[in-house]
Amino acid sequence: MNKVKGLKSKDLLGLKDLSVEEIKLILETARSMKEIMARPIPKVPTLIGKHIVTLFYEPSTRTRTSFNTAAKILSANITNVQMSTSSVVKGESLIDTIKNLEVMGLDCIVIRHSMGGAPHLAAKNCKAAVINAGDGFNEHPTQGLLDIFTMIEKKKTVKGKKVVIVGDIAHSRVARSNIWGLKKLGAEVVVVGPPTLMPKGIEEMGVRVSYKLDEEIGDADFINMLRVQRERMEKGLLPSIEEYSELYGLNSDRMKKAKKDVVVMHPGPINRGVEITSEVADGPFNVILEQVTNGVAVRTAILFLLLSGKES
């Protein structure tokens, strides 16, 4: 088994575990992949004979489709397995599911799970490459990488730039992956959200905490808006969605304070009118759909780096 240049691990579990060099390698590879995507026939034979499975214990449109597209660009086979949430609790254990998939000859398992550490458990129990497509509120590394890819595309670098991440930081894997990656690359990261949605000790990850969006917008280079789920209200963490919008939503009024070249991001799916108004989401500063395109490039790069050169 050849060690593919660059990535130390057989898996991609989180940005926490990646070195700066590895992050840069992925981003650089993603740029090449984006070029391939622009060709009339966006397909290369690199991963012919490789078989990838997506194993999703949580619903997803974007991420799963993105991985499917990426696999097809590289000519890999891909199978999608949707597990019902109930099967997490009863029925076949995660380890058994993984082992069954592995003996079917799969080279790579892309897993999304509602619990932090589930992909790590999967990775420990199989030889196939495991890609974390989001685990609980731990990490969503491909999202983090595509966000950073997009930022660098827009402003050449993230070093020294101010990134404001807004919303439900406590329950956000996107926030964590962004923080790990951005801090490694030298960005200044400010997390903004109500205290009930701010995880304890987040400062130790090297970020600053703020409860005042208006005070952070003015000098921000990037504003990354997170989705806020209605479930948070049911759990008593927020008094109302309307109040949340008023305090932490991004609207055109607030955008008046922003720099002229600010970049507005959102990992999707958007709750229009909740964390971001349509005017802003569709407005001149947004790169939300470009993020989605870049997601394919980044995921293609990751599949390439993890699987090419490895024996099937």
Binding site: G117, G136, E139, P199, G201, I202, M205
Partner: peptide
């Protein structure tokens, strides 16, 4: 335990 470590590894904390 709820704190910097639970935040870091993304597990739900018990204060």
């Amino acid at each position: 335990n709820e704190g910097a470590v639970s935040t870091e590894i993304g597990l739900p904390g018990i204060p």
